[in-house]
């Protein structure tokens, strides 16, 4: 049994996400159409697709930011009715509270749960150590680099031990070296803390490097076009890129994305020369 199967087999494992028959539209434009998607407890799932395909909408529906009158979203059997601490959210723009120090940002979750200030700060310090930022606890976010801010964002979300961690292109604004380091950090945390991760990206390499399963969305309205189990063993070092299985999967994804982007482009009235 490989480590992923073991993780999934953990009896206490949380983070089962079920999206059933979900349709979402904005101002008459369908963003999602009858989407079905299941994330198993402890699973790392990447949502991949052309821009505007509704993958972020699906994520926001799980977060509880989108009303979902059509279809249902449940997390560990509980219907999603609004945002809550059982689902952690990490945005691409970090979205730390600028007026709180790094430590206060991370301590926010426990404090909202009613933890005493000292207890919340102790837990926050621990989580900052976990992401390697114990030394900047008393700084304001604006004084940190993008990568550091995003590590604070991840620590702030994980301190609540959410069943599922929702990440909307979290490393999209970072440079390539920082991104690689952040991916490693995230996988290490996932290994230590558990829970499932639903991760939106438009970077095929990133999806294949991180995910147990890659879900490829069609152009809007988003449907699942491809549900690909990534068979590569973990850990996946840099030279995974050379693995023929990786190359095949990448080729397949890129071909479908290109095809979907072209369809979306033509539907909007564009023409290829």
């Amino acid at each position: 049994m490989d480590i992923q199967a073991m993780r999934r087999a953990r009896p206490s494992a949380r983070g089962r996400v079920e999206i059933r028959d979900l349709s979402v539209s904005y101002d008459g434009h369908a963003a999602l159409e009858r989407l079905h998607l299941t994330v198993e407890p402890g699973e790392f799932v990447c949502l991949l697709g052309p821009s505007g395909c509704g993958k972020s909408t699906a994520l926001n529906a799980v977060a509880g930011f989108v009303r979902t009158p059509e279809g249902s979203v449940t997390v560990d059997g509980e219907p999603v009715l609004g945002p809550g601490a059982d689902r952690g959210m990490v945005f691409q723009q970090y979205s730390l509270f600028p007026w709180k120090t790094v430590l206060e940002n991370v301590a926010f979750g426990p404090r909202m749960k009613g933890a005493a200030r000292a207890e919340a700060r102790r837990a926050a310090r621990e989580h900052l150590e976990l992401v390697g930022l114990g030394g900047v606890a008393d700084k304001y976010p604006a004084t940190l680099s993008g990568g550091m801010q995003q590590r604070v964002g991840i620590a702030r979300a994980l301190i609540n031990r959410p069943g599922v961690l929702l990440m909307d292109e979290p490393f999209g604004a970072l440079d390539a070296q920082t991104r690689g380091f952040m991916q490693e950090t995230l996988l290490r945390l996932w290994d230590e803390i558990g829970g499932s991760i639903l991760f939106v990206t438009h970077d095929v390499d990133e999806a294949l490097l991180l995910a147990d399963r890659v879900i490829l969305f069609s152009a809007a309205p988003g449907r699942v076009l491809l549900d690909l189990a990534v068979a590569l063993p973990r850990p996946r070092p840099e030279d995974s890129f050379a693995d023929p299985a990786f190359a095949d999967a990448k080729k397949q994804c890129l071909r479908l994305i290109r095809q979907e982007s072209r369809r979306a482009f033509e539907r909007q009235g564009g023409q290829f020369a």
């Binding site: 977060a63 609004g82 945005f91 979205s95 926010f108 909202m112």
Partner: peptide, 21 residues
Amino acid sequence: DSRLIASARSLGAKDRDILFE
């Protein structure tokens, strides 16, 4: 930034917390 309010709610903040925090 609306994402700050969204983040706060995802971290368990209630309306009162949103106002003061």
